[in-house]
Amino acid sequence: MIQATKRRVGQGCWPGKQCIDPFKTDFDMLQVQPVSRSVRLNGFSTCLRLEAVYWGILERIAEANQCSVSAVLSYVDREVHLRQGGVRNFSGLIRVICVAWLLDPPSVR
């Protein structure tokens, strides 16, 4: 049986390099679980599957814009069609938008 050992800073990394554990002490593994939701994008019903953490970020984006998550997704869908002619991986685009939103927060948050 393999036992989990508590890593110390600097352990389990490249030789001579300090390592910072990316897991918060209270990290919730449920945030990793994929969640499928039926959404309407500009009048069309579809299913979008994202990890739970991204749905939470989308809810924050919607709240900041005083609209629904569906409205945010419809906006992104419409804009990507207007600007780029569409995208092959819409869920990947949504993940990147969520991360970009967190990295460069609007000044009105």
Rank of each mutant, 00 (worst) to 15 (best):
L93F: 09
D104E: 11
F90H: 11
D104Q: 07
L50Y: 02
G85H: 06
R83S: 13
V87L: 07
L93I: 02
R88A: 02
Q11T: 14
A100W: 14
S38C: 01
L58V: 03
S36N: 05
Y54T: 06
E51Y: 02
E59L: 02
Q84N: 14
E51I: 00
V108D: 13
W14H: 15
S36Q: 08
L102P: 00
E63N: 00
A71E: 05
S45F: 06
Q18C: 10
C13G: 15
Q66P: 00
K24H: 11
L30F: 08
S107P: 06
I20A: 06
S91R: 08
D77G: 09
M1C: 09
S70K: 04
V39C: 05
L73T: 05
P106Y: 10
C13V: 14
M1P: 13
S107Q: 08
Q31L: 12
F23H: 13
D77N: 15
D21A: 04
V99Q: 03
Q84G: 00
D77L: 05
F44H: 14
G12I: 12
P105V: 06
M1S: 14
L82A: 11
N65D: 10
E63M: 00
L48M: 13
Q84P: 03
F27Y: 15
Y54F: 11
N42W: 03
S68Q: 00
S68L: 05
Y75N: 01
T25K: 06
C67P: 01
I94K: 02
G86E: 07
M1L: 09
Q3A: 12
L93D: 06
F44L: 09
W101H: 04
S38V: 11
L102F: 06
V72A: 03
R109L: 13
M29V: 15
V76K: 03
T25C: 01
P22H: 10
L103E: 13
L93R: 08
I2D: 07
A71F: 03
P34S: 11
S36K: 14
V76I: 15
S107Y: 04
S70F: 04
R83D: 10
V80C: 03
A71V: 08
G10Y: 05
Q66F: 10
T5W: 12
G56V: 01
R83Y: 03
Q66Y: 02
D21Q: 10
Q84D: 11
T5G: 07
C47M: 13
Y75R: 00
Q18K: 13
Q66E: 07
S45Q: 05
V96M: 05
M1F: 12
K17N: 14
M1V: 10
L41F: 07
P22T: 07
A4T: 11
V35E: 14
R37H: 14
I2M: 07
A52N: 03
V108E: 11
Y75W: 02
I61D: 01
R7G: 00
